[in-house]
Amino acid sequence: MRKIFELSPQNLEKLSALRKQYPEQKAIVLPLLWMVQNQLSYLSEEGMQFIATELDVPYMHVYSVASFYTMFIFEQPKKHLIEVCRTLSCALNGADDVKAYFDDKCDDDVEVIEVECLGACGGAPMCAVDGKYKESLDDAKLEAILKELKC
């Protein structure tokens, strides 16, 4: 049987609040994408289909919006996710080295991806480990992250 996606009760509540907030229902695509990704850890076809039906927009619209953002992922990720910011401030402060470090040291349980600005430029270079921001990265902090993830 095909898996059907359903929003959690909390997210359902959020959705009905959002519906009132936005006169243009299309605007809810992004928050809904986040809800789906939070629930499933990625965007499944069923999840995006749910959004399309819920907001009465074409499936392809949802998919195209999601594909625009590097932070949305379409496949079940590994156990841990490290998002390394690669936008200007971080890039100038050594994002490349951070990425290379994780690529080199992390084991198969960890997925390392590059994302665009996470809005923490003051703490460049930075990354998000399973959603938690780690800023002003230096060798010690990188090592600490690895320890935390038990690599």
């Binding site: 076809e45 074409p58 499936y59 392809m60 195209s64 594909s67 625009f68």
Partner: peptide, 21 residues
């Protein structure tokens, strides 16, 4: 019929249909 959209962005932007559609 809404099969084609532009996906991705920047130099990765491209026309595509959705997987399996």
């Amino acid at each position: 019929s809404n099969e084609l959209f532009i996906i991705g962005r920047g130099d990765q932007a491209r026309v595509s249909s959705a997987p399996n559609k």
